[in-house]
Design a protein around this nucleic acid. Structure first.
Length: 264
DNA sequence: TGTGATGTTGAATG
DNA sequence: GCATTCAACATCAC
């Protein structure tokens, strides 16, 4: 689920469910995903706190607390939020839940346990520490060009690098490459400035479209590239080219041979 | 039964 | 120190 648009959706859900709420209790069922505190310490740190707001940057969602600290929610591959009132509605893979003073319960579900939950004393210091790049919705052309120049990796390797820009994941990266007709395995250094700017513009456009219209990947329009064209050897969209599956930057990658030309 | 999965990290290498 | 690559993480679903 969670690339930038999905996490944007989580933020909307979180704000409606949690902002302004006071945490009356925290129930931890499995503290594996809480990376810097034990379950009991996590409960101690959060109990009594009020949630004052949230900040999304890339795929990272930070909940701000009334003591100036913050709670990081990173959803990994399978993280999800679930608001409910009755304990019987708890989801099977809930790992912990915030119990609010008004009786509502916000569960954090994560079957695969790749999520990362951290209690942070200083949210901004943490963002600097992990060198999280500018949000993919906001990155300027100048910043993009500056941070991409001199790199030797693939186009897809750049798009997935959260220090260069935050928020693009594996599926959107393929979509962006398809739309720009750039082969994902092309060396970024082999692209012209025009191509780099096209890549930037399409990245922002796809992320913007996603946040506004398709916050959940299964709801994408039928003509979105990777959503439909996921079979090796199939003709590409509108009969152009042939769908190929390969690995780029360590991730399964779909592209259309004859439509996206590899350079460099 | 085996394989792959929307992500990140830390170790290894250049 | 920086850039890059890649296995590892834990578990489920097909």
């Amino acid at each position: 689920m969670p690339e930038l648009p999905e996490v944007h959706n989580f933020k909307l859900y979180f704000d409606a469910a949690a902002t302004g709420q006071t945490i009356a209790d925290v129930r931890v069922h499995d503290d594996y995903i809480i990376r810097n505190l034990s379950g009991p310490a996590f409960t101690d740190a959060l109990t009594g706190r009020r949630i004052t707001g949230s900040l999304r940057r890339g795929k990272y969602l930070f909940a701000d607390l009334d003591n100036g600290h913050a709670l990081l929610l990173h959803f990994g591959m399978t993280g999800d939020l679930h608001l409910y009132q009755d304990a019987v509605d708890r989801h099977k893979y809930e790992r912990f839940a915030l119990h609010f003073a008004d009786g509502n319960i916000l569960g954090f579900d994560d079957p695969r346990k790749f999520a990362r939950i951290l209690y942070l004393h200083d949210r901004d210091a943490y963002i600097r520490e992990i060198k999280l790049g500018p949000d993919a919705l906001d990155i300027t052309r100048e910043t993009w060009l500056d941070s991409v120049r001199g790199r030797k990796t693939s186009v897809k390797g750049v798009l997935l690098n959260q220090s260069i820009l935050a928020g693009v994941g594996n599926l959107y990266a393929d979509e962006i490459c398809y739309r720009t007709r750039i082969h994902p395995a092309s060396r970024i250094s082999a692209l012209s400035d025009d191509q780099l700017l096209t890549l930037h513009a399409e990245t922002v456009a796809v992320m913007t479209y996603g946040t506004e219209n398709a916050p959940y990947y299964k709801n994408y329009p039928e003509n979105w590239f990777w959503h439909v064209w996921r079979e090796e050897g199939k003709p590409g969209p509108e009969g152009v080219g042939v769908v190929k599956i390969t690995k780029v930057a360590g991730r399964t990658t779909y592209y259309v041979e004859g439509w996206q030309e590899e350079v460099g």
